[in-house]
Amino acid sequence: MDKTFTDADAHAYADRQLAPGRVAEFEEAMARDPALAAKVAEIERQNAWLRKGLAAALDEPLPRQLIDAARGAPRRFPRFFAPAFAAAATLVIGLGLGWYARDVTLERAGMPTSFPREAAFAHALYASDSKRPVEVWAPEEKQLVAWLSKRLGLPLRAPDLNSAGYALVGGRLVAGNEKPTAMFMYENSARQRLTLQARTQNGSDETAFRYAVEDGVGVYYWVDDRVAYALAGNLDRAQLLAIGRLVYQQLAAADDRR
């Protein structure tokens, strides 16, 4: 019988893949050699932490599209896991740790991160950015809307807020959340900015307009069918409400035309 055990054996034992015939001997070897036992223990510890860190991902609700795909639904869209979209998604990845750290801070405090709160953070983060507030600019509005619609899996539009004095600056996908969130940014002649954010919402009973102030940013938010919207800005409540109504009317009018 081979009595020498290699590094690979230690890994195999820790991963419960050591050949059954060698297990007893390996355990004897561990009893004689504390360094070997420590190595195995270290691997087992690491395994446990990795599993713990990635466990929650298994409990997330499944998107409808994946359930359909698992059942053999024919492709509804052209393959969108393709290089063109990879480029767009890569832009989204490298946005810094700050956003992620915020979600985690709130989790530690025991508060759920709600959409209005996230929308306020995202507004504060991007509206104040002078260099790159948006990823796709207004002249490319069609491409922007197409991109965001595909990402969210439902048809979006950028409402026209010119009657309220706000022009579209452009848009982006907001990173760091479990769900993709689309953002449209508007600006008035005084360079004050508003953001309209949208993301899919699973069966919520909320339909009413709600108002919240998070860190000095006003947020109007509502759920319309399966989409949650948040309009954010440093405006007073009445002004924000008026624009919120305009957005809502525009989106509702578009729905009726379909």
Partner: peptide, 12 residues
């Protein structure tokens, strides 16, 4: 990425 950190948010 910019900071060398991923923004992939694993839920704890």
């Amino acid at each position: 990425s910019i900071d060398g950190d991923s923004t992939l948010a694993w839920h704890l």
